[in-house]
Computed example of a mutant assay.
Amino acid sequence: MTPINGSCLCGAVRFEIIGRPRSLSYCHCSRCRKQAGVFAAVLMVRREDFRLLSGADEIRRYTPEPPWKHVRAFCGRCGSPLGEPSDEHELFPIAASSLDDDPGVRPVLHMNVESKPAWYEITDGVKQIAGTYGG
């Protein structure tokens, strides 16, 4: 498989995904919206398939106060969301907005759609799960 390349806006953080991603989904929870916009598009990847090529020293992490639990990673230089790359988890989300290449998978799910803005309509026919979780 050809690697899937990704980077932040300023190019300081660069990575590649060498295996097929597990899935691509949209999260509409309030926390994802605050970081990414109307929703966050997240690509689930295996730790063994993710290679950080440069910029480890530029990655910052926001660890929320309980009850929230999802750590958010971003470039400390330009602020681009990166998802949650981790050495601790076998599977983790990468922000699809950081991809430079087509991941070869298409969205399978809209999560937490009860939290989406009233002015945004989902019309793509992709499966929806209600929920309001704000991880």
Rank of each mutant, 00 (worst) to 15 (best):
Y62L: 05
C8P: 14
F92A: 00
E16H: 08
R60F: 00
L52Q: 02
D49Q: 02
E88D: 10
R72C: 00
S115T: 00
R106S: 14
K34M: 06
G83A: 04
K116F: 08
G76C: 08
H89P: 07
R61W: 10
P103H: 03
H110Q: 05
L53E: 00
R51H: 06
K69P: 04
D100L: 15
D100R: 15
D57L: 12
L109P: 13
D102N: 03
G83I: 02
V42R: 06
H89A: 13
W119A: 11
I18K: 15
S86G: 05
T63D: 08
H28K: 04
S80K: 00
C78D: 02
R72I: 05
E84S: 14
S86E: 07
S86M: 05
G55Q: 14
G6S: 13
D124S: 12
Y62M: 07
R72M: 05
L109C: 13
C78Q: 04
K116C: 06
H70Q: 15
G6R: 10
H70E: 12
R106F: 04
L43A: 07
D57T: 02
E90C: 01
S25H: 13
L53H: 00
G55W: 09
L82H: 04
S7F: 00
I4R: 05
S25A: 15
S54E: 07
R46G: 14
C29D: 08
C10S: 08
V42W: 03
P21L: 14
P67S: 01
Y62G: 04
I4L: 11
R60E: 13
G79N: 06
S115R: 01
I122T: 09
I122R: 11
E48N: 10
S7L: 05
P117W: 13
T63R: 10
N5H: 15
F92W: 02
I18M: 15
R106I: 12
R60S: 12
L91G: 02
E16R: 15
A36G: 10
R14V: 03
P81L: 09
P85T: 02
D57V: 11
R46P: 06
V71F: 03
V105T: 08
Y26V: 07
E84L: 13
R33H: 03
S97N: 06
I17K: 13
M44P: 00
A36M: 04
I17D: 10
P93V: 07
Y26I: 05
E16P: 02
I122S: 13
S25E: 15
W119P: 06
R22M: 14
G83R: 07
S98V: 02
L52V: 11
N112M: 07
C27Y: 09
L43H: 06
R106Y: 02
R33Y: 14
V113S: 09
L24A: 14
F15H: 01
F92C: 00
R60T: 04
L109G: 02
L53S: 01
S23M: 14
N112G: 01
I94L: 12
C27F: 10
C78I: 04
V108T: 10
V108F: 11
G55I: 03
A95M: 04
V113R: 11
T123W: 01
E16Q: 14
V13F: 11
